[in-house]
């Protein structure tokens, strides 16, 4: 292959790197946005889980329904807010978000089985943290990218 042709192919590779650097700023912003959503969702899910142990349906049915409705509204508001702001989703981040959310929801579901068990305050706080953990870790990792 002629040196000119080889040079032109090198330029192709260079132009790819320039394009990837060009989009890196938007990628960081996209990572921060999704990371923030994950952290906020983790806080909402963790707090809701803890509160459901305190205001469980056997103790206060009204408060239980109010809490559930408030959590659903908070999750919808966060999700719609994110959809409004979102312009770029970095490669692989959608999957990480779904894994974090899935694991947090799974732990949330498992923890629901204990809400009438009359657990101590420390255990309830610990459970809330455990529920929030997967999404929280995913969010912190994304924000740090």
């Amino acid at each position: 292959m002629s040196p000119e042709k080889n040079e032109s192919l090198r330029r192709q590779l260079e132009s790819m790197e320039v394009a990837q650097q060009g989009i890196s700023g938007a990628k960081r912003q996209g990572a921060r946005q999704l990371g923030t959503l994950c952290i906020l969702l983790a806080v909402v899910l963790g707090a809701l889980h803890g509160l459901l142990h305190v205001f469980n349906p056997e103790r206060n049915l009204g408060a239980f329904f109010v809490l559930c409705a408030a959590a659903v509204l908070a999750i919808l508001a966060l999700t719609f807010g994110y959809q409004f702001l979102r312009r770029l989703l970095p490669a692989g981040f959608g999957r990480k978000y779904l894994i974090g959310l899935g694991m947090s929801l799974l732990l949330y579901g498992l923890g629901l089985g204990l809400i009438t068990a009359g657990l101590g305050a420390m255990v309830v706080v610990l459970l809330a943290i455990v529920v929030a953990m997967p999404l929280l870790f995913a969010g912190i990792w994304m924000v740090r990218q």
Binding site: S15, M16, E17, A19, Q20, G22, I23, S24, K27, G30, L88, L89, P90, A91, G92, F93, G94
Partner: peptide, 8 residues
Amino acid sequence: AALQQVDE
């Protein structure tokens, strides 16, 4: 190349 860096 730019699209390779993103999901969307």
